[in-house]
Design a protein around this nucleic acid. Structure first.
Lengths: 231, 231
DNA sequence: ACACGTCTTTGCGCCCCGACAAACAGCGAG
DNA sequence: CTCGCTGTTTGTCGGGGCGCAAAGACGTGT
């Protein structure tokens, strides 16, 4: 309900064409939730009662297989809606939304999702675009997993992360939230050992810089070359 | 425009709650397209001008990687809508829709997609359900590719196919359209050689029967066991 | 300052599965 | 009937990357 939030929302795609009054009305119905790294907004299998908008931070969406291993399905950056699967006919959250860094989100009761879509021009179409973009990303990842080698997949994953959460520094582009080799292995379907070996190699070649939980891409074009398998 | 089509449509989810008159109006605006095995309704990258409803046959949705290998993203069974990605903000078809068997489909100009959604109760929600189901399937496949061995993935793929296109025979459940080892390898991200070896092994064990382009699952529970890695 | 937990690195051996090659079987065309 | 194309089988070989194990680096809390 702070003024801060109002102007913030105005800049976000789902709400960009609304009036101040409309924004305030929407905000009145929202809850704020702040989580430390590692906390979950909701978990796979829970009843999908609310949908969310990430104001700040980063979220990883995790699925756990019957066998018990976790894999990271996608990442969500600030400004994006999440937990909207119910609009697609699911009554349960299909995955877990976990904070990859300290995160702040607004949430609304699920029935308002339909209401917002019906009432506010642009909200629905923005919704679809989010879904469409995610479907494309998932398709790409299926292709990658099917055809690419581990080395290429890891390179691709890093590039994707820089696109979604890259922050320019004087050394290169830094991935703007804490991320471990384990995380990357869960994104690419390999082991943290292999990821560690690859990153070490790349660091020796000056392609990246890396400290604990932090990765900076120095020569992105080299990663592109690797992900395209031009050896 | 045949009577056949009218009653057929009435039974399909997207149109199940419509009146005869509404159905006729919808049909008047539709084109019919029949394709032999191997033909394409549309191709990846083309401008998305029409959306489709599969009346009969089976379709495989293919993506080609920059490197040139094809992978089968998903299969579409009779009664399902396809080519509706434009509703999600894409102006180009994101993949190729190829007939896996002789197929018959209706199609409408893309603008009618919004119109149908707006006018006809149930059409829009049915649409979402299709999208939701496909997203879940894609998520599952990402998990599988990330965590499962090739043998498990192939078993899972066969089970999925029997669910989507299984036809009961006296020998077991038959996959109801022509499918090659190559196809299966493109679904599971492996080579046709490995698939051939696996299927041969399973046939020796009496789990499946297989002739050229035809697969019959005899002991589905054994496949479930394999896909769950209970060796 | 110290101890502890988390994250990371590195080595080694094995096995799955991809690459290559060659032959066979089924089906349609002429 | 025979040819040719497409799909399938089977063998051998080699390597990428996973499992296992252990130690090292970094950050944190007390």
């Amino acid at each position: 309900m702070k003024k801060l939030d109002e102007s913030l929302l105005l800049r976000l795609p789902p709400f960009s064409q609304l009036s101040r009054a409309q924004i305030r009305k929407i905000l009145d119905q929202a809850q704020t939730k702040r989580l430390d790294e590692g906390g979950s907004f909701f978990s796979e299998g829970e009843e999908a009662t609310r949908f969310y908008l990430l104001l700040d931070g980063h979220i990883r969406v995790i699925k756990t297989t019957p066998a018990g291993d976790q894999i990271i399905v996608l990442h969500i950056a600030a400004g994006q809606l999440f937990g909207i699967a119910a609009a697609l006919g699911h009554s349960l959250y299909p995955a877990t939304a976990q904070a990859a860094a300290e995160s702040l989100a607004l949430s609304w009761p699920m029935p308002l999702l339909q209401e917002f879509s019906a009432i506010y021009q642009g909200f629905a179409t923005e919704n679809y675009k989010v879904v469409g973009a995610r479907m494309q990303e998932m398709q790409s990842r299926i292709s990658e997993m099917a055809t690419q080698q581990v080395e290429q997949r890891v390179a691709t994953a890093l590039l994707r992360l820089t696109n979604q959460a890259g922050r320019k520094t004087d050394e290169g582009i830094e991935i703007d939230f804490p991320i471990t080799r384990q995380d990357i292995s869960e994104m690419t379907g390999t082991t943290l050992h292999t990821v560690s070996r690859l990153l070490s190699g790349w660091e020796k070649q000056g392609i990246i810089l890396s400290t604990r939980k932090r990765i900076v891409i120095v020569e992105a074009h080299q990663l592109v070359r690797i992900s395209d398998n031009l050896t």
